[in-house]
Write a protein that binds this DNA or RNA. Sequence first.
DNA 1: AATGAATGAGGATTCATTCAT
DNA 2: GATGAATGAATCCTCATTCAT
Lengths: 197, 197, 197, 197
Amino acid sequence: MPKLGMEPIRRKALVDATIVEIGRAGSLDVTVSQIAKRAGMSTALAHHYFGGKEQIFLAAMRHILSVYSAQVRAALMVANDPRARLEAIIRASFEAGNFRGEVISAWMNFYVQAQTSTGAKRLLNVYQARLRSNLLHELRPLIGQRAPDVAANIAALIDGLYIRHALRTAMPDGRLASDRVLGCLDMMLATPKGKAK
Amino acid sequence: MPKLGMEPIRRKALVDATIVEIGRAGSLDVTVSQIAKRAGMSTALAHHYFGGKEQIFLAAMRHILSVYSAQVRAALMVANDPRARLEAIIRASFEAGNFRGEVISAWMNFYVQAQTSTGAKRLLNVYQARLRSNLLHELRPLIGQRAPDVAANIAALIDGLYIRHALRTAMPDGRLASDRVLGCLDMMLATPKGKAK
Amino acid sequence: MPKLGMEPIRRKALVDATIVEIGRAGSLDVTVSQIAKRAGMSTALAHHYFGGKEQIFLAAMRHILSVYSAQVRAALMVANDPRARLEAIIRASFEAGNFRGEVISAWMNFYVQAQTSTGAKRLLNVYQARLRSNLLHELRPLIGQRAPDVAANIAALIDGLYIRHALRTAMPDGRLASDRVLGCLDMMLATPKGKAK
Amino acid sequence: MPKLGMEPIRRKALVDATIVEIGRAGSLDVTVSQIAKRAGMSTALAHHYFGGKEQIFLAAMRHILSVYSAQVRAALMVANDPRARLEAIIRASFEAGNFRGEVISAWMNFYVQAQTSTGAKRLLNVYQARLRSNLLHELRPLIGQRAPDVAANIAALIDGLYIRHALRTAMPDGRLASDRVLGCLDMMLATPKGKAK
DNA sequence: AATGAATGAGGATTCATTCAT
DNA sequence: GATGAATGAATCCTCATTCAT
């Protein structure tokens, strides 16, 4: 019965199961047992492949971030001018795949876990840095020195919209959210330096 | 040792201890035992006064929100025109008392807990609604119909800046954060309807 | 506010509350706190008057037994011949005041407590002995040597009917129960020694 | 140490340990810890196999009832006429295996638990119904319409003798007890309808 | 007489993790 | 590779009881 090359399959199953379970529970209070059961294996095997609970969580996080990254990259490919590329980055953040109750919940929880786990903290820092650098790269040609400031605003806005949906009052609507961010973006692009006030 | 009228004293001690411990741990994985010890009493007494762990957490949350509320109200008192009042609301959000590692951490955790606990969810909804209504009230005289949209942007921005500080990379700096929000606010106030894009 | 002669009032309140609470809970898993609250006083006072939980239970038991005793004595007063007196004893056992869900439950629980508490055991032994002696006293004139045997049967039958109602399937009906016992009694009285089989 | 197929072994060990411990304590105030220790395992494992304390108790009860059932069935096999079968049923009730201090104690406690636990209540109802139906089945050919009445008497008598031994004044003697019930039975069988009184 | 305050001890339950097979 | 077996440690919570006032 031992099959060859089971490892990647098992790992993937566990990562997927972890995200689902965190989403379902709405918190990191998810037992290895639940995860393993959903992934169709014993807890012992889960430990065997990942070494421990924290590492399972980290792998799940890494997965979410890499999916998000890939989406951004793909969107950037097909956009031609800076403004279009900014839009691509922003829309990718609220893509249907990411901007779902489950993933929002997992995301929030990762922020909490980052308080404790250096691994989680590092991953979130990578995410923040990458988002900032992506934005900066497209903003510079458009607004030069004001780019860092606007990038920070946009990034905060994105995260803020995420957290505001963590309460699950209404179904998350990615289109609405990215339109809001784009509205702000255009406003900032249009405002000449130091004009306001 | 037993004196009369200990209840409010004990409750306050527990609430304070809870916030400190959540801040220290960076998560809600705080035991009643830790809280009680820091508050200088037995776990049994903590249970006696609050009934259970969740209620202790809720009380801590309620405390944080009410402190914040009081600060907003106080700031609104001394501000005379709408723009000043908006500034007051925003600055209150990043006041030194609130915008501290500990409180930010507690805050994030409450968002997570809101996924599970209806009590926590309700409290956060109250916070969001109150912030929105405060902003709206001052924005309407200034920009009329655009007020709801701008209010949503500002609110998201505030929350986003909070979450961005949850990683504790640098000391949270309230001045910087509120300046950033104010910058955006002024930009939005200055932009005539539909001009951008 | 300290009133004179409160002691008997408080004790009675506690005993009554105990019986009610045991009946309500259907088990001895009743906290001193519940009893004290129902009796309208603090747990500390309950301890002050009785010294401890077990003693409160014993007092409740003693009360039930003494009420029962009084009923038997009263019934015996007005009965003139042995047969009538036997009927009086039996009917008293199933009197409405005793043969109620609550009391049956308490009764059952006292049997259980007798396994642990010598006090409870002693009280139940007194009850059993008194019932036996009462029955014997009336049976002897009627059937002489067969009296001990018949007394034991009747006693077992009474207890058996109690236990059978502990499941609370139907409302306990004292009339039915005592008719049943009386039916058996008359059968035994009518059967000449050694006739059966 | 871990071998396969431990589950039934562990469950049996726990059930046995439960009966012993209830017998020893004379009450249901038995901790899972005590039971697990006597069964030679950790409390965690006990919970793993049974899910909780109440279920352990129910399993113990079910075991006692099924042993009793088996004895009745076995005894019925070798008895040929109704009277013999009645005797078999009655003697089985007081068989040495059942009519022991420990089991009597457990039995009494189950009656108490039935006040709270629907599972326990159901099991005792099954016992009572089965006993009644067994008795009825044999009594009908002998006494026809009087069967239900006599069955109820016999059943109550059996339970009454059990409860009377719960005080553990003397060693329970099954022979004596069943002789007493048989004596009553024969008396009832011999008494023509309505003759007494 | 009466009580609010306080706690130590204990109990059910959960869970991550390890191990032998 | 895979798992059932097993547990130690921890956690929340309850409760009888004591004590100072």
